[in-house]
Design a protein around this nucleic acid. Structure first.
Lengths: 229, 229
DNA sequence: GGACAACAGTGATGGGCATCACACAATCCG
DNA sequence: CGGATTGTGTGATGCCCATCACTGTTGTCC
């Protein structure tokens, strides 16, 4: 239990919340574990709380009537998920599913509200999180509007590098996360086959490489350039 | 000056803030007027405050290197614009330009922060605004991912109806706002020519009509259907 | 009220990318 | 350890929609 507390404090502070508030919030949290593929909630569900990721990863996605899926984000440890329904009381706006086996901390909506009302700094903190989300959403829309397929794939890789990247020596970034081409395709909004083509072009050009199943960005600068609007 | 105050209270309450807080905020505001085409700020600028629209309209947009423009939103009276930079202290993430001559109220960042720290309910209110923005952004991305061109145009019209629509008799909605096809195209992310084709198909089918320059949604249900993901 | 500019309709053309269709790894598992 | 299931590479085909190239139409401002 103390271990959970410590984990949580780390998680929340990863997102930049001050220490004592983090422990306050941690006290509200209920630990839980999920298997890969587990559905935390689906679009339209009433929002009864949010989740902090301690370990593992989740995808946030929306699905079309035909069943095609568009990832809004893939989130790793230290992230908060499902906060939107907490803030405006409306229904969940997307699906959230576990990608890997994960350990989470669930925070009940009412408990959160009580705590936040007593500690307004929490609200400021949530604002900066939601703000970041909104900026990111706009960036993705911009990419979708202006960039051809390779640019969108580049953006996706860089985004994943933000979340899962470990720098290795000079300017090489290893994405320490098992990714399929379909995952990347669902993020970039493209067909899996074309993602394959783009990725191979880059592999041949030495822009990226694959190290025991993980993608490694050899020349992030080239990717950044490709993702310039 | 009293008139400004009253206007502002109405504006803010349009977005759902309680009366006394609205007047508190109104006291911070500095009135200003802008001509059509005036640039309030551009992406990358430091964010020194936000704007409430009393009269007129603004566009929020991003621009590609080639100069193509994508509207993120067209906002009318009662809306708040530029709040993002207020919340997380980062640079402006988009351009905001006046579409029509407009009367605005500018709220300085520091003044706002002082006021909000003293009245945390303001934070809750901002959260629900930003939350709504985020939901909307996700909806647009979903449309861009899943819907063919007509669906995206339908979504755009319905969105505009939210902001500028006046219901006229049974289930007809008049969009009381001068719109060019280019405007719609820039929102829907499509070429102006194709928007023209879609609009004419619908006009011929009696789904929409044009009444002295304003578009009127004759059968909003059909449009809603076309914009189902 | 005529001249100019901005907006609107419509065909023709072409390209980017989704889709289909498989061969070929790689990985999981009883 | 084969056999199945999942992920990957690569060509061929076609369609949606951007783009180009106009003509027609509506304003608007001396």
């Amino acid at each position: 239990m103390v271990e959970l507390q410590r984990f949580l404090e780390n998680s929340f502070s990863l997102e930049g919340l001050s220490g004592d508030l983090a422990s306050g919030l941690a006290a509200l949290a209920r630990p839980m574990s999920v298997k890969p593929g587990a559905i935390l909630f689906e679009s339209g569900d009433p929002g009864n709380g949010c989740y902090a990721i301690l370990e593992g990863s989740l995808k946030v996605s929306i699905v079309s009537v035909e069943g095609d899926e568009q990832f809004l984000a893939v989130m790793g440890p230290g992230s908060i998920v499902g906060e939107l329904a907490l803030l405006d009381g409306r229904a969940r706006s997307a699906n959230v599913t576990a990608l890997k086996a994960s350990r989470l901390a669930f925070i009940d909506k009412h408990a959160f509200e009580r705590f936040a009302d007593a500690n307004p700094a929490v609200y400021r903190h949530m604002l900066s999180i939601v703000g970041k989300r909104l900026r990111q959403a706009n960036d993705v829309l911009a990419a979708r509007s202006f960039l051809p397929l390779p640019g969108r794939v580049a953006q996706t890789l860089l985004q994943l590098a933000e979340t899962f990247g470990k720098p290795v020596e000079k300017d090489r970034i290893l994405i320490h996360y098992k990714l399929s081409q379909s995952d990347i395709a669902n993020m970039a909004g493209a067909a899996r086959e074309n993602v394959s083509r783009v990725l191979n072009d880059w592999k041949r050009a030495g822009t990226i490489s694959r190290i025991s199943g993980y993608y490694c960005l050899e020349k992030p600068d080239l990717l950044k350039q490709a993702s310039v609007l």
